[in-house]
Deep mutational scan, measured.
Amino acid sequence: MQIFVKTLTGKTITLEVEPSDTIENVKAKIQDKEGIPPDQQRLIFAGKQLEDGRTLSDYNIQKESTLHLVLR
């Protein structure tokens, strides 16, 4: 499924993921596309910060959901 990741600069990254993918996994995909190390990434969905060990389905993230990427 496709999800979108919006950065603070207003750029939107499109990722191909599975509901069973972990947040860690998603961060690795963002690193592949954008070169941002996962340890600098914070992903936010519905106002919650997403934890590395959880999966997209844990957070009920469905196709075409938009996550927000904050760098630390």
Rank of each mutant, 00 (worst) to 15 (best):
A46I: 11
I13M: 05
E64G: 09
L15P: 00
H68Y: 04
I13N: 02
Q31L: 05
I61D: 00
S57Q: 04
Q2T: 11
Q41Y: 06
K63F: 12
S57W: 11
K11V: 12
P38F: 08
Q31K: 14
K6E: 09
K27T: 03
I36G: 03
I23W: 01
S20H: 14
E24H: 12
V5S: 01
K33V: 15
G53I: 14
L43W: 01
K27L: 06
G10V: 04
E51P: 04
K33E: 14
R42Q: 11
T12G: 08
S57G: 10
N25R: 09
S20V: 15
I30D: 00
L69E: 01
D39W: 09
K33N: 04
L67M: 04
D21S: 14
K63Q: 13
K33D: 10
A46T: 05
K33C: 02
V5Q: 00
D21P: 00
L56S: 01
R54P: 15
K11I: 15
E24G: 08
D58Q: 05
M1K: 03
D39T: 05
M1L: 07
V5L: 10
K6F: 07
E24T: 14
R42L: 09
L43F: 15
P19S: 09
E64M: 06
I23S: 04
E16I: 13
T9R: 12
R72D: 15
K29P: 00
Q31A: 04
H68E: 10
T66N: 03
T22C: 02
V17C: 02
E51H: 13
T7E: 08
L43R: 00
I36S: 12
I13F: 09
G10D: 06
A28V: 12
V5P: 00
E16K: 12
F4Q: 05
T66Y: 10
Q62C: 02
V70T: 06
D52V: 08
R54N: 07
Y59T: 02
Y59N: 03
P19I: 09
G47F: 12
L50H: 00
V70S: 05
N25V: 11
Q62V: 05
I23G: 03
Q62Y: 11
K63T: 14
P37R: 09
T9G: 07
L56Q: 00
I44A: 07
R72Q: 15
K6R: 04
H68F: 14
T14K: 13
P19T: 10
A28P: 01
L15A: 02
L15K: 00
I23F: 03
I36R: 03
P19F: 14
E16L: 10
I44F: 08
G35S: 13
Q40L: 04
P37F: 12
R54M: 10
Q31I: 03
K63W: 10
S57P: 05
I3H: 00
R54G: 07
P38C: 02
V70M: 07
Q31R: 05
G53H: 13
F4N: 04
F45I: 11
G53V: 09
A28W: 10
Q62R: 13
Q62P: 09
V5F: 05
Q41K: 02
F4H: 08
L8Y: 10
D58E: 13
F45S: 13
K48I: 06
D39E: 15
Q40F: 06
T12Q: 07
I23H: 02
F45N: 08
I23D: 00
G10A: 10
Y59R: 01
R72T: 09
T55F: 04
H68P: 01
Y59G: 01
D58C: 02
T7P: 12
M1G: 06
D32G: 14
D52A: 07
K29R: 10
P19Y: 09
E34V: 06
L71P: 05
K63R: 15
G53F: 08
R42S: 15
E16S: 10
L50Y: 01
T55Q: 10
T22D: 09
D52L: 05
T12F: 13
P19K: 15
Q2D: 09
G47V: 03
L15W: 01
T22S: 15
E51K: 06
I3P: 00
V17T: 04
G53T: 09
Q62H: 10
K27R: 11
G10E: 12
R72L: 09
L15T: 01
K6A: 13
Q62F: 10
D21F: 15
D52R: 07
Y59D: 02
Y59I: 03
N60Y: 12
S65F: 07
L56K: 00
Q40W: 13
F45M: 05
E18S: 13
E34S: 15
Q62A: 05
Q62M: 06
N60W: 12
Q62N: 11
Q62E: 08
L50C: 02
I23E: 01
Q40A: 15
E34M: 12
K63Y: 13
E51N: 05
S20A: 15
K11F: 09
E16W: 12
Y59P: 00
R72S: 08
S65N: 13
E64A: 05
I36K: 03
E51L: 15
I44L: 12
Q40M: 13
Q2F: 06
K29D: 05
R54K: 13
L69F: 03
I44N: 12
S57R: 10
D52N: 07
K33F: 12
I30A: 02
I36M: 06
L8N: 15
L71Y: 11
M1F: 13
D58V: 06
N60P: 03
R42I: 15
L43G: 00
V26E: 00
V70G: 11
E51C: 03
Q49I: 07
Q41T: 12
D52K: 14
E64F: 11
F4Y: 15
K48W: 13
V26M: 05
E16D: 13
T22N: 05
V26R: 00
I23Q: 03
D52Y: 07
F45P: 00
H68M: 12
K27E: 01
G53D: 06
Q49G: 10
T9I: 08
T7K: 08
N25T: 08
L69V: 11
A28G: 05
I44E: 05
V70H: 05
E34R: 11
F45V: 11
E64I: 10
G47Y: 13
Q49V: 15
G47E: 08
N60C: 03
L50M: 09
K63G: 15
E34Y: 14
E34L: 07
Q49L: 06
T55H: 09
L67Q: 01
D39L: 10
D32R: 11
N60L: 07
D58H: 13
L56V: 07
T66R: 11
P37I: 12
I36T: 06
V26P: 00
L50T: 05
L8I: 08
T14Y: 14
I23R: 01
N60R: 08
L50W: 01
D58K: 03
D32C: 03
D58R: 03
F45G: 04
S57E: 15
E18D: 06
P37G: 05
Q2L: 14
S65I: 06
G10S: 13
K48N: 10
F4E: 07
I30E: 00
Q31W: 10
S57Y: 09
A28H: 07
E18M: 14
I23N: 01
L71F: 07
D39C: 03
R54T: 09
E34K: 11
K48D: 14
P19E: 12
E24S: 08
L50S: 01
K63C: 03
N25W: 10
V17P: 01
I13G: 01
A28C: 02
G47P: 01
K33S: 07
S57M: 04
K48E: 13
D21R: 05
L71R: 12
E51I: 07
T9S: 07
V17G: 02
K11S: 10
K6P: 01
K6N: 10
Y59S: 08
K29F: 05
G53A: 10
